[in-house]
Amino acid sequence: MIFAEALVMGGLVGILTGLFGVGGGFLITPLLNIVLHIPMPIAVGTSAMQILGVSTAGLYCRRREGTVDYKMAIMLFGGNLVGVRLGVRTLERMKGLGDIPLNGNALAAADFYILCIFFVMLGAIAAWILYDTTRNTQRPDVHIGLFAHIHLPPYASFGSLEERRLSIPVMCYFGLALGFMTGLLGIGGGVILLPALVYLVGMRTHCATATSLALVWASSFIATIEQSLAGNANLLLAIPLLMGGTLGIQLGVKLASRLGGPKLRQYFSLVVIATMVLVAARIVSVAV
């Protein structure tokens, strides 16, 4: 039964992935916990496996484009590697906290804290997308990111950027923060990484998309190893998610070519808000 439910969930998230071009990890982790009642650490670990499969397919499809800035990806991955380990260790600590009594009901501390983090994160993502779609979209692509204004030596230069010199420590800590989210929440980070590469680092969008995908792959690869060692990766759950996801993505891509335009981003924000409401309902249902 859970196989069929996971297959349907994978398919639905896959359609959204194909429609909006995001990995879907930030939807799969809370939905696995809320809809299928999978404990949060297992949901996080399994989501990392799902992201690894989806990003592998994405990289395969883009293999001839040559738009990945490997120097940038490797530098971010340095911090990412540490961040993923920190995230998984934090998750293990949360697992050890036991249950939280909420108004006579008990909820696992890991589930409660991670649902709260997801609630805040989904709210921030929805707010950002709504802000991004309502402002003037006619302006040219951002070429100088905010990180270029931070002067903290040593520096490295990147051929893909207009302002080529960027601080190495800033990039490493940025990678660490992304990796921490991958390890703790089981999200690839693409939904945050892509706008961050454009607006903070100053990359052009087509280059940012490819570099983001390469980093999400590397990050989910490490997260899968760490989560598997911690006993959080469930292959039997990942199989239907990947099966449904693969078919869903193809359907989503076809739908996206019919819809098109900025409307898609507004629909995406509605999906994010709906997930946020589900997360809030889960917290409230236990607490009240």
């Binding site: 496996m49 799902q50 690894l52 499969g53 989806v54 994405g58 190893i225 292959l235 990947l242 693969t246």
Partner: peptide, 13 residues
């Protein structure tokens, strides 16, 4: 856990 998602992603793509 590593090989299944990678193989699945490559084969389906």
């Amino acid at each position: 856990a590593l090989l299944f998602p990678i193989a699945w992603g490559l084969v389906t793509a």
